[in-house]
């Protein structure tokens, strides 16, 4: 059984009394420990697929199994729980809380985690060491460079020890050198056993992945191993 299974997934939105089918029957398996890249142009349904994988939304129809559990009809609360347990997000614009310090930003997911772990703070510091920012703990995001902010975001994604890292255009705001740094950190996470999914339109970024899928017009049109 794959870690992540989508069978014949569709997603329809009602826009101005008109039904728009954004995903038209997606079949996708993601195995534990895989590094997958999803490519597609804007309007292809790439973002919608990412939201489904990130459990931010539920499909209109189809079977959606995560870790042997059918999740296509879960309530909002249950999806929140799944996000906090299984998924770590990395966004294009970093999305750090501007008024919180680096330490507080990285700790954010632990606030909503049901698990009782005593050494949360120790873990946060450990992660900041891994991304090379242990000397920036008290800084505000505005005092950091883009690359540093994205590293904070990666540490935040990892803090609840999720199985899946879901990165949406993680290098979209960064220069080439910094992009390579960020991608090598994500690769390292993959080597440490995480499942990594990167959504991108950048072929260089996709090149880090083991497997690449392309989405066009709501369908998976190409899979490369």
């Amino acid at each position: 059984m794959p870690f992540f299974l989508m069978e014949n997934i569709t997603k329809t939105f009602n826009l101005a009394a008109e039904e728009v089918q954004v995903l038209k029957g997606i079949n996708l398996e993601i195995n534990r420990g895989e590094f997958l890249a999803i490519m597609g142009t804007s309007g292809s349904g790439k973002s919608t697929l990412m939201h489904l994988i990130g459990c931010l939304d539920v499909p209109t129809s189809g079977r959606f199994v995560l870790d042997d559990r059918e999740i296509s009809h879960l309530s909002d609360n249950e999806l929140s729980l799944i996000r906090s347990r299984y998924i770590g997000f990395v966004f294009q614009n970093f999305y750090l809380l501007p008024y919180a310090t680096v330490l507080e930003n990285v700790s954010l997911p632990t606030l909503y985690d049901e698990k009782k772990t005593d050494n949360k703070k120790k873990r946060v510091i450990e992660l900041l060491k891994q991304v090379g920012l242990e000397d920036r703990m008290g800084f505000k995001p505005s005092q950091l460079s883009g690359g540093q902010q994205q590293r904070v975001a990666i540490a935040r994604a990892l803090v609840n020890d999720p199985e899946l890292i879901l990165a949406d255009e993680p290098t979209g705001q960064l220069d080439d050198k910094t992009s390579r740094e960020i991608m090598s950190i994500l690769s390292k996470m993959h080597q440490n056993g995480k499942t990594v999914v990167v959504v991108t339109h950048d072929a260089d970024v996709a090149g880090y992945a083991q497997r690449l899928i392309r989405i066009t017009d709501g369908m998976i049109c190409d899979q490369t191993l």
């Binding site: 609360n77 929140s80 996000r83 999305y95 750090l96 909503y112």
Partner: peptide
């Protein structure tokens, strides 16, 4: 949105 993405429920 960020809080919701990292696991906050509506009531949180």
């Amino acid at each position: 949105g960020i809080r919701r993405a990292v696991g906050a429920r509506q009531q949180d």
